[in-house]
């Protein structure tokens, strides 16, 4: 009598459920984005994803039990907010200081450690995504939330377009040392008048007019004027600004007695 052997077990490719792979994939992808020279918006989103996932991972490593959606969300958010504080406290006493590479390295380290704890405990890594058994049920809330987001966008667009009449219409005039020790002065005019303005500058040294020049500036434009005349310590410099339409009426003036440290 022959005994039939049980069939040899066929090798099956180990499958990682999406609920476990997705958070790990998102975490790694976000970390890669953070170290690449990508646009700021993408980097900001990646930073948020890393922060939230690390917070969630540490929360699940410390408290592996079911806490309900509210409890879990609360714990993850709290830890996501607390971790940068702890990392900053450690980095501030370290020789490295608080900087972008150090923070990314710390996030990666904490994320890996928390994941290792979860693997050891057999806790699912990251939020568990249940399969969408009824996608039609999702359509209505998704459309409604999208409509809400669009309405909020309109509210912000409306708000950003509002400017108080007369608010912020001015030009500034300033004087400062040109560069250390060369006896130069630097004069700067900035236009905040929401229109192109013609300016005229007069420069006086110890009461003697030594130059006059004109320039038209668009809104937001800067005019850096560096007169050729060198100024010695103890001399008094006076700069007067006139603007269109009346280029003879004094608009602004600044002055300085040049110090030895100029």
């Amino acid at each position: 009598m022959t005994r039939r052997l049980p069939p040899f077990p066929r090798w099956r490719r180990p499958t990682v459920p999406p609920s476990r792979a997705a958070p790990i994939g998102a975490f790694v992808a976000a970390l890669i984005v953070l170290v690449l020279p990508v646009p700021v918006a993408l980097r900001a989103i990646a930073a948020l994803v890393v922060g939230l996932l690390v917070g969630d991972a540490v929360g699940r490593a410390i408290v592996p039990t079911r806490m309900g959606v509210g409890g879990r969300l609360a714990l993850s958010l709290s830890i996501a907010l607390a971790l940068p504080v702890a990392v900053a406290l450690v980095l501030t006493v370290s020789p490295f200081g608080i900087g972008r590479p150090q923070l990314i390295a710390a996030a990666a380290l904490v994320g890996v450690l928390a994941s290792a704890v979860m693997v050891r405990r057999g806790t699912p890594i990251g939020p568990t995504f249940t399969p969408l058994r009824a996608p039609r049920r999702l359509a209505r809330p998704a459309i409604l939330y999208l409509a809400a987001v669009l309405l909020v966008g309109v509210a912000f667009a409306l708000r950003l377009s509002a400017t108080a009449p007369g608010e912020g219409l001015y030009s500034s005039l300033s004087i400062s040392p040109g560069s250390a020790g060369d006896g130069q002065v630097a004069v700067e005019v900035i236009n905040h008048e929401r229109t192109t303005v013609l300016y005229r500058l007069e420069l006086e040294l110890d009461g003697r007019l030594i130059g006059s020049t004109m320039s038209a500036l668009p809104d937001g434009g800067h005019w850096d004027y560096r007169p050729d005349t060198a100024v010695a310590a103890g001399q008094r410099v006076e700069v007067r600004l006139f603007r269109s339409p009346d280029l003879t009426k004094l608009y602004r003036d600044v002055n300085a007695t040049v110090g030895v440290d100029w």
């Binding site: 900001a44 990646a46 922060g51 990392v87 900053a88 923070l103 996030a107």
Partner: peptide
């Protein structure tokens, strides 16, 4: 008491956005 500021500075450094945002 730099908790709020540490979290904000971390986001500024990592995300490259302004302190305000």
């Amino acid at each position: 008491y730099p908790a709020l500021e540490s979290a904000t500075a971390a986001l500024v450094e990592m995300g490259g956005i302004s302190i305000f945002h």
